[in-house]
Amino acid sequence: PSTLLATLRTVANIWRNEQQNQNALAIAEAGSKLYDKFVGFVESMDGINKALGQAQSQFQTAYGRLVSGRGNLISSTEKLRKLGIKAGKQLQRDLV
């Protein structure tokens, strides 16, 4: 009986060690997948940042054409209104 008990304890320890090894491998695999996902997420965020920067640049260009420089769209259309075209609406004063 004492030899059997010692053998059972040894087998239980081996099984526990094997389970811990399997858990460690599963954790390592999950960590690897998580890291790859995180890298992809960071790359996506960088792409979004670049796209937002390009959108902001395009907006500034379009807005500049609308309100500034000689012959901008606001002053050109306001001249038409002053010349007598019939308009149902009027531009905001801060834009004119």
Rank of each mutant, 00 (worst) to 15 (best):
F38S: 08
F38K: 05
N17A: 08
R70Y: 08
F59S: 13
S32Q: 14
S44K: 09
E43S: 03
L52T: 00
K37A: 07
M45H: 05
G40C: 10
D46P: 04
G69Y: 12
K37E: 06
A24C: 04
A24V: 13
F38D: 03
D46W: 04
Q58I: 09
V42L: 13
N17H: 07
A26E: 07
S44V: 15
S57D: 10
K50R: 15
V39G: 00
E43K: 15
S57M: 07
E18H: 12
G69F: 01
N17D: 07
L52I: 00
L25Q: 09
G53S: 02
Y63I: 04
E78Y: 03
N21Y: 12
K79E: 09
G71Y: 05
Q60M: 12
L66M: 03
K50D: 07
E18Q: 13
S68Q: 11
T61Y: 01
Q58W: 04
A62L: 13
T61Q: 01
L80H: 05
K37P: 01
S75L: 02
A24K: 08
G47L: 11
K50C: 01
T61W: 00
T61S: 02
Q22C: 12
R81H: 06
K79T: 11
V67T: 13
A30Y: 08
E43N: 08
K37M: 09
E78D: 08
R16L: 02
Y35L: 06
E18V: 06
N23E: 14
V42Y: 06
N49T: 14
F38E: 04
Q56K: 13
A55T: 10
Q60C: 08
A62Q: 12
E29I: 15
K33I: 06
A51R: 15
G64V: 15
K33Q: 12
G31H: 08
Q54W: 09
E78C: 06
G53T: 02
N21G: 07
A55G: 01
E18W: 04
N17C: 09
R65D: 09
L52P: 01
Q22R: 11
